[in-house]
Amino acid sequence: MTCWDILSDYGLRSLGIGERLLPRDNFTICQQVVLIGSGMIWNIYFGLLALVSGFFLAVATAVGKAHHNPMFRKPAEWFIFVFRGSPLFIQFFFAYFTFQSLKGAYPIFTPLTSAWLGALIVLFLNTAAYSAEIFYGALMSIPKGDIEAADAYGMSGWKRFRRITLPTMLRLAWPAYTNEAIFLFHATTLVFMSGFPARSQMGDALYYASYFADKTFNPFIPYPILAGFFILLTLTVIGTFGLINKQLNRHLPQTNRAKIRLRLNLIR
C-alpha cells in the first residue's frame, strides 16, 4: 500500500469520507501523518469559524464594557469575567451536559450535543470574551487627540466610531489579537478531549495523535507530527495577521508601525 493509497483512503477520514476502519496494526509514518493531518480539518474549522464570528461579538462587548451606562457595561463585564475566569475545559463539559439536558427536554436542541455546533458555540463565546478584553484595552488607549480631532471635524456617533475609533482600536489591538488567534487554534484541541463525542472516530488532530500513541505505546512519533502541523498552522496565522496588520498601519510612517511580537502561549 503506497502513501498515495493511504492519502485517498484516510485523507478525509475525519469527515467520515474514505476507509471506515482506522488502521489497527503495522502503523506506518505515512498513515500517522495523513490521519493527523486529516484531523487538522476540524481544528481549522473550529478555529476559523469561532474567530470570525467571535470578532463581531468581541467588538460589541468591548464597546459595551467601555459604555458609561451600567445597563450595557455590567453584562459585558460579567460575560468577560465568566469566560476568562474559568477553565475552557470546564466550560466545554458544562456546555455539553447542559445541551444534553436541553436535548432531553426539547429534541430541537439535538445538534447542540454534537461537537460541530456545540463546541463551536463554546469556542465562539470564549474567544469573544478574551478578544473583548483585548479590544477594550485598545479602546482605552486610543489617543485622546484622535477623538478630539474627529470632534473638531464635526464627526460624532456612528460616523466617528466607524472612521476613527474602530480603525484605531483594531490597529492598537492587532498584535495581541494575533496571539489570541494562535491560542484559539491551540484551544481547539480540547474539544474532543472534553465530553463532546467523536462520532465513528471522526476527531481532530490531537484525537488521532493520542489514538496512535495509545496503540503503539510510542509517543515519539505521533506527537512530533502533531507539533509539526500546528507549527505550520501557527506560521500561517502569523503570516495572515501580519498582512492585515500591514493594511491597518499603511497610513503610518514606517518607524511607528506596531510590530507583531509573539508572546507567551497560554492555556485556558
Partner: peptide
C-alpha cells in the same frame, strides 16, 4: 518549546514519555 504547539499535546506527550 511551548510556542506554536498546543500545551495539551505536551501534557499527553510528557506523561507517556517520562514514564517510559
Amino acid at each position: 518549546i511551548v510556542r506554536g504547539v498546543p500545551d495539551i499535546a505536551f501534557f499527553l506527550f510528557f506523561v507517556i514519555a517520562l514514564d517510559q
